[in-house]
Structures are given as structure tokens and as C-alpha cells.
Design a protein around this nucleic acid. Structure first.
Lengths: 216, 216
DNA sequence: TAACCTACCAAACACTTGTTAGGGAAGTGT
DNA sequence: ACACTTCCCTAACAAGTGTTTGGTAGGTTA
């Protein structure tokens, strides 16, 4: 109300800018993030233009910037939301004090549930996390991966010590084996298919634990 | 056979054009394709600019077009060269008339040898094949994947019929399981590491066939 | 010597990219 | 009636993209 300064370069202007970006309706935001995640997962992050996302959302490219301040922010939010929920589930399992085999079973089952609920995010994570984690903004991806390795590798080691897992296998190889076989499933899994996440988990566990060969 | 693109429309022009693109020294060509594959694998195809490739090759962006007629051609040549060699190995195995278990073992071993020799190409294939195969130019990726499924799935079915593989598992799940566990290894495998391809294959086969649990 | 070929450079081209600025329609509260 | 907010559009921007064109140093051949 006092003296207005239309001249450029006004130094201290606390006037509220035009972008809410976090305070607005969170449902629309989540809606847009879901469609963005779908496009990212289908085409790859770099191959996805903001215009394609806008197309899929039924609006124009510039309008996305009312909700988000960059394409990278969308990716960030998609991935961090997924990881937050993932670790919520994992931590519960790890704190339950189960035996090694039961822990592996619970982790695998939990993973397939996450794939079921965050299929797109998992697919993006799998494709892009390697070169994203070099960027400082996405360094939490590396952190998560380290926690991940610690949890799985530790459980496997416990299992070997307790003689419930074989001791004649390279345990790092085993870790990568189990980890990869679980997460790549996101590339072909479709929610609402023939098998429930729990059923897929059961079959995967049966294969990983007992093998596909007939026992003699 | 490499993808030949004569790009007709030039009826009979005695004046020699300026681009060899296939007839020139093939070693330099292969050299450039190798560095390009490395960058593609590290950064992703779409995130890789021709200037980055040129940088890695120690030349300028435009100079690449003396050897290749497009960025896409480089990708095409990398992938088709890999697949050609892969199927050479696979067909030999499949024609050997081995039993189901021995066929699986040979296929897995052959796969890890290919990963050893074409690590970059495999990584690219894994990341990009899904959305590339939609493009007509890369339709041979779909063809290859179908042949792939036929070979593996058929062998697994033979094994179930011969009672060397378990019959209580969903065979399509098993197929995807085995397939994925093999090829994702390209994302972490580094030639010259601790384990030879054959050693990795041995461990993988041991896990897949017999499981990681201790027999009771 | 001259002609020629190979393998590259320098500089630009047309287009796409993520992003921004200003505006406006529809709804809500007063 | 008015102001205000929400959510989107129109139209543009600068930077980066794949690609082309013309040129040229250096070697090979005649």
C-alpha cells in the first residue's frame, strides 16, 4: 500500500510469488506425478519431454510449472516418495527380529508389494538411479542403496552363519542375484495380472531358496 | 549382415560423394562404435549427445558424420552386431542336442561370455530395448526377444517333461526369473574383475538350479 | 609436380528442449 | 458488486540438439 516501486530491481519485495508448488491441492499434484511417472517409466526420463507429460495430463507444457518448478523436481518427488514408503516397510520387517530365512521371505514379499503399488517409480529407479546418484540432488539414492545392501547382505550372512543358507556361494554374488531378480520384475509386472504380488513372491522365494531343479 | 541403407534416389552420379560410411577403414569405425557404446551405456542413449561421443573419441561432433550417417545408426549397428554374435553362440548351443539341464547350463554360460565381451551393448540393450522395439527400424529387437523366449521357455518345458525341473512352478515366471537374473548382471559386471564369466555362470547356475537354502 | 583420397575441423543450420512471463476464465468469499 | 484465488493458456525465450556444408592438412598415387 505504501509507495509502490514499479522500477525494476526492487531489492526486497516479500510479495508472495505466483507459484504455490506445495501448498495447493495435493491430490491434483499427486495425480500429475502419477501420470509423469508413467511416462518416465515408459520412455525413460531423458527421452520424456515436459510436453509429453503435459499431453498425457491433458494440458500444456507451461502449465505444469504452476505445480512444479522443474522437470527434475517431478522426478525427485516421485523417487523420494517411493523410497520413503519402501523404507517404511523394510524397517518394520528388519525390526521384527525374525530369523534369516524369514527375514528374506518378508523382504521379498514386501518388495513385490511395493512393485505392485509403485510400479512406475520402481522402473524409473532401476533405469536411472545409476547415473542420477552422481548428481548431488539425488545423492539419497546412493544412501538408500547402501542401506539396502547392508540389510540384505547382513541377513544373508546371518543365514550362512546359522547354516540355513549355503556357505559355498560367493555371498556378494548371491546378494546381487537376489536383489536384481526381485527388482527387475518391475519391468514386466502389471498390476491386476494373473498373479498377486504375494503369489509372485512365493514363487520367487521358492526358486531362490530351493532352486528349479528336481531334488534327487 | 550389417544394416545396409543404400538410400536410393541417386540414379547415376559419377561424381564421388563424400561419405564412405561403410567402405572406409573398418577398424576406426569399430573403434568409434566401441567408445560410443561405452557412453551410451553409462549415460543412456537419449542423454548422450553426439558431442559427448565426439569428446570421448577426441574429435568434434560433425566429424562423426564422416563415419556414420546418424546417431541412431550408431546405436543400430552396436545392437545388431551384438545380437548377431549372440545368436551365433546360442544357435550353436541349441543345435548341439543337449539335455534340458545341460542346455540351460550352456546358455547361461554363453550369456555370461557375451556379457564379458559386449558389456556395453548388453547394458544398452537392457535399458533401451523396450521402447526402441516400437520403432520400425529396431523391430529386430522384438524378433530377437521372441526367439529368445522360445529357446529358453522351450528348454524349460522339456526339462519339466523330463522331470529334471520342478513342475510346481509357473513356467513363465521361471523363464523371466532365469532370463532376468542373467542379463541384469551386465549392469554391475566389469571385465577383468575377480570372477571369470565362467565362474559367475557356475555360481548363478548353482543358485538357480539348487537354491540358496541348505538342504535338509 | 599435380591430382586425389582420407579423416578431420569450423561454422553454421533448423529444430527441440526446459522454462518463464503475462493474461484470463471460472469459482469463492464478502 | 467487487476483490481474490486457483488453475490453466498463449507466446515467447535462450540454450542445447542432431545434422549439413564447405574447407583443409597430410598422406598416397601417377
Amino acid at each position: 500500500m505504501p509507495t509502490n516501486k514499479p522500477t525494476a530491481e526492487s531489492p526486497a519485495e516479500p510479495t508472495a510469488k505466483r507459484k504455490p508448488q506445495v501448498s495447493a491441492s495435493p491430490e491434483r499434484r499427486r495425480e500429475l506425478l502419477d501420470t509423469a511417472a508413467e511416462v518416465f517409466a515408459a520412455q525413460g526420463y531423458n527421452a520424456t519431454t515436459v510436453r509429453k507429460i503435459a499431453d498425457a495430463a491433458g494440458m500444456l507444457a507451461g502449465s505444469l510449472y504452476y505445480h512444479f518448478d522443474s522437470k527434475e523436481s517431478m522426478l525427485d518427488e516421485i523417487l523420494s516418495a517411493f523410497l520413503t514408503e519402501l523404507w517404511q516397510g523394510y524397517d518394520t520387517v528388519l525390526a521384527a527380529g525374525l530369523g534369516p530365512r524369514e527375514t528374506i521371505e518378508a523382504l521379498v514379499t514386501e518388495s513385490f508389494r511395493e512393485i505392485d503399488r509403485h510400479r512406475a517409480a520402481v522402473a524409473i529407479y532401476q533405469k536411472e538411479s545409476r547415473h542420477l546418484s552422481a548428481q548431488p540432488r539425488f545423492h539419497y539414492l546412493s544412501d538408500s542403496q547402501q542401506k539396502f545392501e547392508k540389510a540384505w547382505l547382513g541377513t544373508l550372512e546371518r543365514g550362512v552363519a546359522a547354516k540355513v543358507f549355503r556357505a559355498d556361494l560367493d555371498i556378494r554374488l548371491t546378494y546381487r542375484f537376489v536383489r536384481d531378480t526381485v527388482w527387475v520384475a518391475a519391468s514386466w509386472y502389471r498390476p491386476g495380472g494373473q498373479h498377486s504380488p504375494e503369489e509372485i513372491a512365493r514363487q520367487y522365494l521358492s526358486m531362490v531358496l530351493d532352486g528349479i531343479a528336481v531334488r534327487s
